[in-house]
């Protein structure tokens, strides 16, 4: 059995009770603010907020432990790559140089570089909790109606709903096809030479693609038969009216992001510079 995808489960926290629209807006605003800002103070505040909301949500650790592990590896590799490629990036950005330790050749550790890389990590860390929360504490059914409500065309919104619906089925199909292929001696592991491995992959992808195209035909017919796309607007079974709590959270998210942007660009630079 392949590892299960991250899955929604209702633990009934205040975060779970929020409307999908609210969570989507908060997630988007935080993501944008987190992307634009390089102001350490803002990012730190945002991270604290993110983490406390995550704490309130009571999402069980084992639901995201695997993801967390991947995130750590990815971040570590990325940090290493940045340093290897450009050990003086921080010096360039902040305009000063405080060397802490010379390593070898052009590599030395500077406070600027450390601070810069800390910020890169921070930027990513700020976005991860809301993203995970949006995924783990929002009923997948609410994704589509929420997106439609914030202005995405209902057809695109429904396509996303179909993605969530058919990921497990396509995954099962992939497992079935590759199992049958392995039984005939089609090996994808490192035991085979690269060229053969690519060829073998094609032998699995072809039936998978053809089965997917067939599925697209069937599902389209089913959608047509139940009148999908006949009107300019559609309603959603899983939509809920916004409550007072939702309005408050949205207002809060707007205010925080606006504040972040204002503070960040107050001095004309998106970087907060502690060295001058």
């Amino acid at each position: 059995m392949p590892p299960k995808l991250l899955s929604y489960s209702d633990v009934g926290s205040p975060v779970h009770r929020l409307n999908g629209v609210t969570k989507l807006i908060a997630f988007l605003l935080f993501s944008i603010a987190g992307m634009v800002s390089y102001d350490t103070r803002c990012l730190l505040v945002m991270l604290v907020i993110s983490l406390s909301v995550f704490y309130i949500s009571k999402v069980p650790f084992k639901q995201y432990s695997f993801v967390l592990y991947l995130i750590l590896i990815f971040s570590a590799l990325n940090q290493l790559a940045i340093f290897l490629f450009s050990p003086e990036q921080g010096v360039q950005i902040y305009g000063t140089r405080h060397e802490l330790l010379h390593i070898a050749g052009r590599y030395s550790l500077t406070s600027e570089q450390l601070f810069y890389q800390f910020n890169v990590l921070l930027k990513f860390a700020v976005v991860v909790p809301p993203a995970l929360l949006f995924l783990l504490a929002t009923e997948p059914s609410e994704f589509a109606s929420s997106l439609n409500r914030v202005g995405v065309s209902y057809k695109v919104a429904y396509a996303i709903s179909l993605t969530m619906r058919y990921i497990p089925d396509v995954q099962q199909e992939y497992v079935n096809i590759s199992t049958a292929a392995q039984a005939r001696g089609i090996d994808l592991s490192k035991k085979e030479k690269l060229g053969r491995r690519v060829k073998n992959m094609a032998a699995i992808l072809l039936p998978l693609v053809l089965a997917t195209l067939e599925r697209i035909e069937k599902v389209s017919a089913a959608l047509e038969l139940r009148g999908f796309g006949r009107k300019r607007k559609r309603t959603w079974y899983r939509s809920r009216p916004l409550t007072k709590r939702d309005t408050l959270v949205i207002a809060g998210a707007v205010l925080i992001s606006a504040a972040v942007l204002v503070i960040t660009f107050w001095d004309g630079s998106r970087f907060y510079n502690p060295f001058v």
């Binding site: 695109v156 179909l162 993605t163 619906r165 058919y166 035909e217 389209s220």
Partner: peptide, 13 residues
């Protein structure tokens, strides 16, 4: 409709 489904299931794949 077919394009919508192709987007949804294509993304799943």
């Amino acid at each position: 409709v077919k394009t919508v489904v192709a987007i949804g299931i294509g993304a799943a794949l």
